[in-house]
Computed example of a mutant assay.
Amino acid sequence: MTQRVFTRRAASALALSLAATLPLAAHAQQDYPNKPIRLVVSFAAGGLTDVIARAMQPKLSEALGQPIVIENRPGAGGTLAEALVARAPADGYTLLMTADSVPANPHLIPNLSYDAMKDLIPVAVLTRIPLVMLVNPSLPVNNVKELVAYAQANKGKVSYASPGIGTSNHLYFEVFKDLAKADIAHVAYKGGGPAMADVLAGHVPVTLISSTLAAPQVAAGKVRAIAVTSETRSKQMPNVPTFVEQGFADFKPQQWNGLFVPAGTPAPIVAKLTAEFSKVLKSPEVVARLTELGAEPVMSTQQEFSSLLRRDYDVLGKLIRERGIKAQ
């Protein structure tokens, strides 16, 4: 009898505790945010993802009514930042802004301490940045078909530069090679800057690189742009045809920057972040700055972002396994 009374009392105490906790949790969500928000950026200060985050920072702080503290956590292809956010409290006060390495990383780096596809909630694609295929002016080609023909006629003599093994630039060029059946060797660098420098110098004649890095060099006449990966021509380089125009209808990859939160973050908080980020990406000041950077504001839905991640996870995973590609 005593045991049953104790059990009933314990059950009642637990019920009262839960009843008290639920309103507090609901209030915390309604009151969100009520303290500074940490925005973890997966790449170094001055890189494109960081610059995009800082372009949005003042308007985000204004929209959410709290300071937005940017914390750069570069390294290991973005996995250091991903792991940090995956382990953070799911309360909306730790966010992740990262790039398109997320779906490739699990295939490139074995034994990660987290599962990005389960431990992070994809909120939205924030921006897209088209890639541009550039050639050094010494290479006698003016379009993609001429490049492919030249590579086939000079087997083993044409190479392309990428910012590193496993970067989207590297992986997408390998996809292009499959589509074009082109024999073009890969030369990996430690970043887009060094890769571009050697293309400018003519040491490596070809690269596929973000329009942000490409546009100034094209405008200066230091390299020749032969194709852009966007579905329509770039506003920065309107004279450069797309891959689609040149017969490569299935080659439309673009680099992206996206927003993630830890799994378990309450839906009302995710909805709040979605609404406020969407407003910021429509503000004239932010749109103007992103346009300068060659980035297109997007603000996809969660479903669209999830579908993109799943598709890239499968496609890039298959490519990485077949090529035996491993992270540097």
Rank of each mutant, 00 (worst) to 15 (best):
I165F: 10
V244S: 04
A86Q: 06
Q254R: 15
P253Y: 15
I68D: 06
P74W: 02
F248V: 11
Y172I: 00
D198E: 12
Q303P: 04
I68L: 13
H107D: 12
M237N: 03
F43R: 09
K157T: 06
I70D: 10
Y114R: 10
P58G: 10
L316C: 03
P67L: 08
K145V: 00
P262V: 07
Q152L: 13
N111T: 03
A63E: 13
G264K: 10
S168L: 09
F176T: 09
A86L: 05
G193V: 15
K222H: 07
Q246R: 06
E296T: 13
P106R: 08
A11Y: 14
T94R: 00
K326A: 12
T301G: 10
V123G: 03
Y160I: 14
P130V: 06
N169G: 08
R4Q: 13
V218G: 08
K272I: 15
S278L: 06
A263M: 11
T232F: 04
L39K: 04
F43W: 09
A288K: 05
Q254L: 10
I165P: 04
S42K: 07
S162A: 13
P140V: 00
K279D: 09
S101T: 13
E322I: 00
V315H: 11
M117H: 11
V199Y: 05
I129A: 09
K222Y: 08
A249F: 04
D91M: 01
T232R: 14
L48R: 09
P106C: 08
M133P: 10
V199R: 02
Y189Q: 06
R233W: 10
T49S: 11
N257S: 09
A227I: 04
G65T: 10
R4C: 02
I129P: 02
H170T: 03
R233P: 01
A15L: 14
K157F: 05
T212N: 08
D100W: 05
S61D: 00
F260G: 01
G164E: 11
M97P: 01
A45Q: 15
A28H: 11
A11G: 03
L131F: 11
V187S: 10
L80V: 15
T232D: 05
A76P: 00
A197S: 12
T7Y: 15
L96R: 05
A53Y: 01
A197K: 14
H170A: 07
I68N: 08
A215V: 14
A180P: 02
Q255F: 12
P238F: 10
S61I: 02
Q302L: 03
V69C: 07
D250R: 14
T232G: 05
H203L: 14
A185K: 12
G166R: 02
M299T: 05
